[in-house]
Design a protein around this nucleic acid. Structure first.
Lengths: 137, 137
DNA sequence: ACATTGTATGCAAATATGAGCATATAGACA
DNA sequence: TGTCTATATGCTCATATTTGCATACAATGT
């Protein structure tokens, strides 16, 4: 539960999926809904869920729940976490991190009033929904 | 051999021993002899050796050999490595990192002409040797 | 009540990792 | 040649981790 050792924290980030999730949270300056992360990384939902839980147990992120939706964000109450996230943002350049951010920005375009209002959206439908939404505006 | 994935690198640092070794190399601005690292961390020689080899395979450190002595140093030819070592220096505060640095500075006092001239030195003998050396100067 | 949806989690098999010890190698030197 | 000494490495066992799947749970809407 309490993984306060620095090495334990780095071990958590020493996994491709968890690092991508951490990067997404660090780089996008907002809380992200689980389904948004799933769509951005295009990985099975349970992998994202498990990754988020491990990041949370390590004290790196926290969650705001809104009904069934869960919004995760980086915890910056400790200085070491700030150092860590700054590092992740700077260190994780190139793929797959850039692509993940691109996908995320597309997904974020579907938000309504700053809130995630759709669940899992397959690639194909994403374009349609974005068009519909921008037309509505 | 080629662990260029960012997560793989972080996984290497996600181990207490390897992180301590990496910190020692990052924080002391010089090449360190294997036996100096062994004495500083007070861990079995094979653990240090294995840790150094893994750090080397990950492209984080390199070694200069001088007879049987091996001097390891952080590789800073890639920008990402520089970012990484700067992070490690900043992130690894408190124990055991501080203590390791203290032990190292004691061990470095035994150097002669900037070179390591003694092998493994048990705690007790260290004090004697240091006294002898400072008296000789 | 029921179905749907977003999210979390238990389980089992495959795989990876770390600790410890013994030993190998190789250079220095008597 | 033989013996130290510094460092590297092979092997085994215990343990940890990952992966994928199925399913649980909880909130929402009909």
């Amino acid at each position: 539960m309490e993984a306060n050792l620095k090495a334990e924290i780095l071990k958590i980030l020493g996994d491709q999926t968890r690092l991508r999730v951490a990067y997404l949270l660090a780089a996008s300056k907002r809380s992200l809904c689980v389904c948004e992360i799933v769509d951005s990384l295009k990985l099975p939902q349970y992998q994202i869920s498990k990754s988020l839980i491990m990041l949370r147990r390590a004290g790196l992120v926290d969650v705001d729940r809104n009904g069934t939706w869960g919004y995760y964000y980086p915890k910056t109450d400790q200085k070491t976490n700030t150092i860590l996230f700054d590092f992740v943002k700077e260190y994780c350049i190139g793929e797959p991190f850039d692509g993940d951010l691109t996908e995320l920005s597309k997904r974020l375009a579907l938000r309504d009033g700053g809130r995630c209002v759709v669940g899992f959206v397959p690639e194909k439908e994403l374009q349609k929904l974005i068009r519909k939404k921008t037309a509505a505006v």
